Amino acid sequence: MSQLVVVARFSFPHEAHIARSMLESEGVPAFVADEHTVNMQWLYSNAIGGVRLLAPNGHAKRAIELLQQDNSDTLCEVLAEEYPDTADACPDCGSTEIEPYTQGKKAAFVVFLLLGFPLFFYKHGLRCRHCGCFWRT
């Protein structure tokens, strides 16, 4: 068997396993090292260089190329095809000019200043920039 080479390093074992699965799906053998050390004492992760993803020397170049690919646009296309009715649009006017918004944030801050402890009565959601409609996600 050829020598194993480090092709990537990760802070957490689950990240390394996702990358390993992707490499194996492309026919590149890969192995995860130091995952148990990080699982037992995660503060050691940076000290030991993280969780290592290893590949045989003959497959290392291909593994690095695969790991450097950005497939985020493909994911967005697949999600849009699978869930077409989840496109973000205002339920009142249908506008797509929406933004994340926290309703009641100012009042919660004032209560915190006056009473000295927080009262969490705000709501996270989306707000339409066109008509001002707020809805929870």
Rank of each mutant, 00 (worst) to 15 (best):
T86G: 08
A55Q: 09
Q3P: 02
L53E: 08
N57A: 13
F109P: 00
L126G: 00
G132I: 12
V38K: 03
E77T: 07
L53Y: 10
G58N: 13
M40G: 14
A8V: 05
I48P: 06
D88Y: 07
H36M: 05
C128D: 07
L114N: 01
S2P: 14
L4Q: 15
N71F: 01
V38G: 03
A80N: 09
T74Q: 11
S95G: 02
P84E: 08
L67W: 01
H14G: 02
E15P: 01
V111C: 00
A8S: 15
Y122H: 11
V6F: 06
F31D: 05
K105V: 07
W42K: 10
L66H: 03
E82A: 12
C90G: 01
R52C: 14
Y83V: 14
L66V: 03
E65K: 09
A33Y: 12
F10E: 13
A108R: 02
L115F: 04
S95M: 02
D92R: 10
G132R: 09
N46M: 11
Y122R: 10
A30S: 14
T102S: 04
L113C: 13
E99C: 06
A80K: 08
M40T: 09
S25G: 08
Y83G: 09
Q103L: 15
K61E: 15
S11F: 03
F117T: 03
W42E: 13
P56V: 08
Y44T: 14
T86M: 13
Y101P: 02
S25P: 04
P29S: 08
V78F: 09
S95D: 02
C90H: 03
M1P: 12
H14M: 04
D92E: 12
S11C: 04
L43P: 00
V111S: 02
S72H: 01
A47P: 00
D73G: 04
V51A: 07
G125F: 02
R129Y: 03
H17R: 13
L66W: 00
H59A: 11
C131G: 11
P56H: 06
N71S: 07
P100S: 07
L67G: 06
D34C: 04
A16P: 10
A16E: 06
I48E: 07
C93M: 05
A16H: 06
L4V: 09
V5Q: 14
P84F: 10
D34F: 12
P13F: 09
P56S: 09
H59I: 00
F31K: 13
A60F: 13
P100N: 08
L115C: 04
F12Q: 14
